[in-house]
Design a protein around this nucleic acid. Structure first.
Length: 617
RNA sequence: GGGGCGGUAGCUCAAUUGGUUAGAGUACCGGACUGUCGAUCCGGUGGUUGCGGGUUCGAGUCCCGUCCGCCUCGCCA
């Protein structure tokens, strides 16, 4: 084989006159009958090859050249010269061409289902995933793979330089049925038992701290058997880490350095110090625990003003748990968003659509009003609920509270604190997209820390307390005492206890989250008690961790970053499958390998399982 | 588990709101062409309209079921 001396991306004018070899794929061919041009491609670029019948050593080579088709794999030998037909400014190698003297066709291709080029329209994703090797040949995909590699490289370098050890943890792991549904693996040696694939290496990394590892990191695979979304896959990667002898500030400082390193190295961006925003403020202003601060449209609580309106929807909502404290999730509230200039931009069709759309979040609808200029030059209301809020006791206060100007639209949601907050949080983002005020990719990078999240919330359906993060998350230092003393049925107090947790949020997307872990036994038993775990049950599930923690555990805490989402941000993709070489579909299928697939009766027998699946008739 | 969108030539799409033999671009095959660069020009092959039922004189089009893909709610400690 004519092994390459150069890649297809590196030949320049300085190489003119040299004899070189290239290997690659035929990216395109232009057969002029006499002259034949081939653009040869590898991961590094394109180089134009010329086959000239005059002076060709043998005519059969020229015949072979004329038969070359897209995606054939070839090796060539020839000399570099200036392009006779003029430069091609689109190519890095566009000033030169290779005059071929020897051609070796390494592999003819069957007619491929699609060509891996980036102009024109892509085939649908089903086809791309089925022939992923063709899709990955596209320059765009090669760039994404490269970016992902660079992120991993920068990550390992950064943490290595800061004293972290990369330690691998088991993939065949113990089932701990809280949290996400697990993938399970039947065990051959112990009939009737199963491994689970880890949702994350959480418990192992804490044990590594007890092990004296001091600083651990791992780029690891995690598995969650839940339905995917545009930014979720059943198996995904985390930059996982844990540190000993630290408080929250130390971890946050180290992580800001990490974010700065990755974004600096990969995109050349300077990341400023991260703003810190308490969970409660995130919810109050943005209606979500991962606020997108790239645009305004902040949410305002106007319950007190709304109480003065003679509007049944508001009154009914406010009648829910009226005496509860302000942020108690079941308290009735009225909240609103001012859309500057919305009177013109938000059509009736759009706002009607919002009223329907918010029902998916449990809200009854959206109340709408527009502001106009009255004949006397003041601000007036029209359409929607105008007549209910026009009273002289209400109108001026509302204008002041929301900072209204002529030409605005106001969207109201009246419901429980939890529903109204979530609904407006989602609506705010939808309106921003509809108005086209979300900055396009690369224009703005708004990082922030979400801190002080609650320890627990009650599950909507079962009414049971569940940990917002996980059961080893410590309360914030100043909250521990109140937490231990709180009665189990004191919902308002328990809901207000905040943890030493923290999330990194970028442009409205959570890219990392973690916490300081509990090292106080009284706190830990209180957590288990609230979660409904008896000491015996806790021991049964987590004995290895509890035991480890009892033998001299250093104060510790950590965080995990979603590698896939990080790469999505860095390459400007809104599809997680684009940043994973071999992703799965919504039912967890790999369209290329056709996994999952059935196994034989014998295989099942060996691991002591039997399928109950009966194919439909 | 629920809601929405989609599936027509290898690929990307069209097909007059149910009406003749389902078209175009591209890829592929054949031919022409010595400076192209997403080459150009001429000709050609290529279809179980995802699958299964139904309505109808007649279905790519309407109805029911089903499979697959995407988005989304629930879910994701």
């Amino acid at each position: 084989m004519l092994r390459r001396t150069h890649t297809c991306g590196e030949l320049r004018e300085s190489h003119i006159g040299q004899t070189v070899n290239l290997n690659g794929w035929v990216n395109s061919y232009r057969d002029h009958g006499g002259l034949v041009f081939i653009d040869l491609r590898d991961r590094f670029g394109l180089t134009q090859l010329v086959f000239d019948p005059e002076g060709a050593a043998n005519p059969s080579m020229h015949e072979a050249a004329r038969k070359l088709r897209n995606e054939d794999v070839v090796a060539v030998r020839g000399t570099i010269r200036t392009r006779i037909g003029g430069e091609n400014p689109k190519l890095a190698t566009g000033k030169v061409e290779l005059v071929v003297s020897e051609l070796e066709v390494l592999n003819k291709t069957d007619n491929p289902p699609f060509l891996p080029d980036d102009f024109g329209q892509l085939p649908n994703e089903e086809i791309r995933l089925k022939h992923r090797y063709l899709d990955l040949r596209r320059t765009t995909m090669q760039k994404i793979l490269t970016t992902r590699h660079n992120v991993m490289r920068a990550t390992r370098n950064y943490f290595h330089e800061n004293g972290f050890l990369e330690v691998e943890t088991p993939i065949l792991y113990k089932s701990t049925p809280e949290g996400a549904r697990e993938f399970i693996v039947p065990c051959r040696n112990v009939p009737g038992t199963f491994y689970a694939l880890p949702q994350s290496p959480q418990l192992f990394k804490q044990i590594l701290m007890v092990s004296g590892c001091d600083r651990y990191m791992q780029i690891c695979r995690c598995f969650r058997d839940e339905d995917p979304r545009a930014d979720r896959q059943p198996e995904f990667s985390q930059v996982d880490l844990e540190m000993s002898f630290v408080r929250r500030e130390h971890i946050m400082e180290m992580m800001e350095g990490f974010v700065r390193r990755v974004f600096g190295e990969v995109l050349g961006i300077t990341v400023p110090a991260l703003v810190r925003m308490p969970y409660r403020e995130c919810l109050e202003r943005f209606g979500i625990d991962r606020p997108d601060t790239r645009y305004g449209l902040e949410i305002k609580d106007i319950s007190e003003i709304a109480a003065k309106c003679d509007f049944k929807v508001f009154k009914d909502a406010l009648a829910k748990n009226p005496t509860a404290r302000q942020f108690y999730s079941k308290k009735g509230v009225v909240k609103a968003i001012r859309i500057p200039g919305g009177a013109e931009k938000l059509t009736r069709k759009l706002t009607d659509g919002y009223s329907e759309w918010v029902k998916t979040f449990g809200a009854g609808g959206v109340a709408v009003v527009k502001t106009i200029k009255t004949p006397d030059g003041n601000i007036g209301f029209e359409t929607g609920i105008a007549k209910f809020i026009d009273a002289p006791t209400v109108k001026p206060e509302l204008i002041a509270a929301l900072g209204l100007q002529v030409g605005d639209t106001v969207l109201f949601v009246a419901d429980t604190y939890a529903v109204a907050t979530k609904t407006l949080g989602e609506l705010r983002q939808k309106v921003a997209r509809d108005l086209g005020i979300v900055p396009e990719w690369g224009k703005m990078w708004n990082f922030l820390w979400m801190i002080d999240p609650p320890m627990f919330e009650r599950n909507k359906d079962t009414g049971k307390w569940v940990a917002l993060h996980h059961p080893f998350t410590a309360p914030r230092d100043d909250q521990a005492a109140a937490f231990v003393e709180a009665a189990e049925d004191d919902d308002e107090t328990l809901e207000s206890i905040v943890s030493a947790g923290y999330d990194v949020v970028l442009n409205g997307s959570e890219i990392g989250g973690g916490s300081i872990r509990i090292h106080d036994r009284a706190v830990q038993s209180k957590v288990f008690q609230l979660l409904g775990l008896s000491p015996e049950q806790a021991k049964e599930k987590f004995s290895f961790l509890l035991e480890a923690l009892s033998y001299g555990a250093p104060p510790h805490g950590g965080i995990a970053f979603g590698l896939d989402r990080l790469v999505m941000h860095l390459v400007g993709s809104d599809n997680i499958r684009d940043v994973i070489a071999f992703p799965k579909t919504q039912i967890g299928a790999d369209l290329m390998t056709r996994a999952p697939s059935s196994c034989t009766e014998d295989q099942m027998k060996q691991v002591h399982i039997k399928s109950t699946w009966v194919p439909p008739v």
